[in-house]
């Protein structure tokens, strides 16, 4: 049986940045409107602004839907919101109004997902300072979404570039604190996050490589023992459960395995270990997945790019990749919900 087409909500992100422009560009990309039933969630003038910036007519015939029609309408629809006044939109500026609009649109999309009216969410870039000014009561948007959804399970950010996906055991902490935070539970969680996300993305038996913490993977304990004491036992235990998990691999060559297609994800130990490789390989194509949440959520990895906002030079590549990955994840999600 052909899986049902996924229903995807798209929110523009901060209206001061390149999000609205990118979403309109995305809708004009080949194959996008066939891949999913798309629901634009946001203010009419913000979408029109995006169309103007992209130099593309919003001649897409978005059908204005009432809330009760959402989730039943095929093709492209639009759920109008009133989150920001047109005169409050200041291109390329951090504003409280921009942050508030970002959050209200996201909240609505999350509500729709929890009501089973959409199967996945794509959001345009947020501006962290604007979100904070608007009173976001969490460290970042990932924790915000988890809290909004009342989700208490393990969740976290995944970074994706083409065929390379990474998760991290530690993230925004000082390097001094990294080694002490490499725990068996943390490593298991990061492996599990990669596995679950890849399964959602359609990999039935994900191949996961675990990066080492120390140079040369510690060289048999000569430059550190975390590989022997923590990583190897966790990996062995995963293998005993018939999972395709390998490592710990020296981190200077582990990303080549992913590039060559030998593994689907790399579990990294600290922020820069994976981010150096991903940003080096494709600064303009990276995707962030808000992993572990009850609903699939993706976004382009880049920011609001105020330096180029409103100039119609923003590259839609990362947004396209975020959309394509979301379609795969949302398709699985819809099928699983239907089966449940």
């Amino acid at each position: 049986m052909t899986p049902l087409k996924p229903r995807i909500a798209i929110v523009p992100g901060d209206p001061s940045g390149i999000g609205p422009e990118l979403v309109v560009k995305l809708l004009h990309e080949e194959g996008v409107r066939d891949a999913a039933d798309i629901l634009l969630v946001g203010d009419a003038h913000v979408w029109r602004q995006g169309a103007g910036q992209a130099g593309l007519d919003l001649d897409l015939g978005p059908v204005e839907l009432g809330e009760d029609q959402v989730g039943t309408h095929p093709g492209l629809g639009w759920l109008p919101l009133d989150t920001i006044a047109p005169q409050e939109v200041c291109i390329a500026q951090v504003t409280e109004a921009g942050g508030r609009s970002s959050l209200r649109c996201l909240d609505k999309a999350l509500d729709l997902a929890m009501a089973d009216k959409v199967d996945g969410i794509l959001f345009g870039p947020f501006n962290k300072a604007a979100l904070t000014a608007a009173g976001m009561d969490a460290e970042d948007e990932h924790r915000y979404m988890a809290r909004y959804l009342g989700h208490e399970g393990y969740h976290g950010e995944l970074n994706v570039l083409d065929e390379l996906m990474t998760t991290r055991v530690t993230s925004h902490i000082g390097l001094r604190d990294v080694a002490g935070n490499i725990t068996p539970e943390g490593v298991e969680n990061a492996i599990g996050l990669a596995e679950d996300t890849l399964k959602r993305a359609g990999k039935t038996r994900p191949r996961i490589a675990v990066a080492a913490l120390n140079p040369h993977a510690g060289d048999n304990g000569k430059f550190g023992r975390e590989e022997i004491d923590i990583l190897a036992p966790v990996i062995r235990s995963a293998q005993e459960r018939q999972k395709d998990v390998t490592g710990p691999w020296p981190s200077d060559t582990v990303f080549l395995k992913a590039i060559r297609g030998e593994v689907d994800a790399v579990v990294t130990m600290y922020h820069d270990q994976g981010q150096i490789a991903i940003k080096l390989l494709g600064f303009e194509r990276g995707v962030t997945v808000a992993g572990g949440l009850p609903v699939p959520v993706t976004t382009p990895a880049h920011g609001t790019a105020f330096d180029i906002a409103g100039q119609n030079i923003a590259n839609v590549g990362a947004t396209r990749q975020a959309f394509d990955l979301l379609v795969r994840m949302a398709t699985t999600h819809r099928a699983q919900r239907a089966a449940a």
Binding site: L175, P215, H216, D252, F255, I259, D272, Q273, A277, L280
Partner: peptide, 16 residues
Amino acid sequence: CMYHDQALIPIKTIDF
């Protein structure tokens, strides 16, 4: 760079 892999990850990824 400040540590081994901070230097080695980029160069090996660029040119193994």
